[in-house]
């Protein structure tokens, strides 16, 4: 049995990152944009863990960083969802196309 090479994992995480970017840029629902963001952050987590495991197995810096990213992403999502709920209360929509009261 051979181990999965590092490049496979990096290809996976890069794909995941850009699927997240694509979702963020094309989705018009603010919650769906937030999901795209989570995908991007999780792909970075995969990167960190893969580098840590394959290249520097004697360290735990990458793993530690991942835990912080997960925690901060949760905080970010909490604040973002609170703001989106408040936006819905005042304007009755959460569509990025309609959130255009601030323009020129």
């Amino acid at each position: 049995m051979t181990a999965i090479p590092l490049t496979h994992i990096l290809v996976l995480s890069t794909l995941l990152f850009f699927i997240g970017v694509f979702g963020f840029l094309t989705r018009r629902n603010l919650i769906a944009m937030l999901m795209g963001l989570e995908l991007m952050l999780n792909s970075v987590n995969i990167n960190f863990i893969a580098f840590n495991k394959y290249l520097y197995p004697e360290q735990i810096e990458g793993l530690g960083f991942t835990i912080f990213i997960v925690a901060i992403a949760a905080a970010e999502a909490a604040v973002a969802i609170a703001i989106i709920i408040n936006l819905f209360r005042t304007t009755h929509h959460i569509d990025a196309e309609q959130a255009d009261s601030l323009k020129y």
Binding site: L30, V44, N47, F51, I83
Partner: peptide
């Protein structure tokens, strides 16, 4: 105001993701 907050948090999280991807390659 809510719209401004939503725009700020989404765009700053988007930029943080790029920053983090950069940091992960720096680590690698």
């Amino acid at each position: 105001s809510s719209e401004a907050g939503a725009k700020l948090i989404l765009s700053s999280a988007f930029s943080s993701a790029f920053l983090l991807l950069g940091i992960s390659f720096v680590y690698g």
